[in-house]
Simulated assay, not measured.
Amino acid sequence: MKYMLLVYGAETSWTPESREDCMRKSMTICDELEKEGKLIASSPLMSVSTSKTVRVRDGKQLVTTGPFAETTEQLGGYYILDVENEAEALAIAARIPPASVGSVEVRPLESLPL
């Protein structure tokens, strides 16, 4: 079953050194998952200050600078996994370093008919 792990945290919770350490540990986990055939994709996101939000109302596009919601924790990255079950996805989420300072949301991906 496929799951998306959404990594949330406050951008201010990382020093340059702790962010680098987090990236190194996360890449090790990605390497392990890839060797096991469980990793489909993963990536950190650039700073929330680079984001734009698009809304269409009455057929007109409105683009605003910044994230969809003003919160203390922002979406900072994601993993897409193909694992046996939810328990395995949750166990992997707990291993991801940002889970110790933020949160990791685990959501199953819905299959679309082709």
Rank of each mutant, 00 (worst) to 15 (best):
G77H: 08
D58C: 02
S43M: 13
S18T: 15
R95I: 02
R107A: 11
A41R: 11
L45W: 06
E11K: 00
A99E: 11
D21R: 14
M46R: 11
P67H: 05
S13A: 15
E34N: 11
I92N: 00
A87K: 11
E32Q: 13
D82C: 01
M27A: 14
E105Q: 11
V104S: 05
P97L: 06
E73L: 05
V83G: 00
T72D: 15
F68Q: 08
I29L: 15
V54I: 15
K60M: 14
L81K: 00
D82F: 03
E17V: 09
M1R: 06
P16Y: 07
E86G: 06
S26A: 14
M27R: 14
Y78H: 07
M1L: 05
L114M: 10
W14I: 00
A87R: 10
I80G: 00
A99V: 08
K38S: 00
T64K: 03
Q74D: 13
P97V: 08
E11T: 04
Y78R: 07
K2W: 03
W14Q: 06
L6I: 13
Y78T: 05
M23Q: 11
R95K: 15
P16E: 11
T50L: 10
E88G: 01
S18A: 14
S100Q: 12
P16M: 05
S43F: 08
Q61W: 07
P98F: 00
P67F: 03
T71M: 08
E20W: 02
R95D: 12
L90R: 12
T12V: 06
L5Q: 00
P44V: 12
W14N: 08
M1Y: 02
T72N: 13
V54G: 06
R95F: 01
V106F: 00
R107E: 09
T65W: 07
K52I: 14
S47G: 12
D21I: 09
I29K: 04
S13K: 13
I40S: 00
C22Q: 04
A94H: 13
K2H: 13
G59P: 04
L39S: 02
I29S: 01
V101K: 03
G102L: 02
R95P: 06
S26Q: 09
E70L: 11
N85F: 02
Y79P: 04
V101Y: 06
Y79G: 08
E34C: 09
S51I: 00
E105I: 13
E36G: 05
I96A: 01
V7K: 03
G77C: 05
G76K: 05
A10N: 12
G76E: 05
P67I: 06
E36T: 08
C22E: 07
S47H: 11
P113Q: 12
R55P: 05
T53W: 01
G102T: 03
M27P: 03
A91H: 10
R55E: 15
F68C: 10
I80A: 02
Y79W: 15
P67S: 09
R19G: 01
A10K: 13
V48L: 09
K25M: 10
V83D: 05
P98M: 00
M46F: 03
L90I: 14
T71R: 09
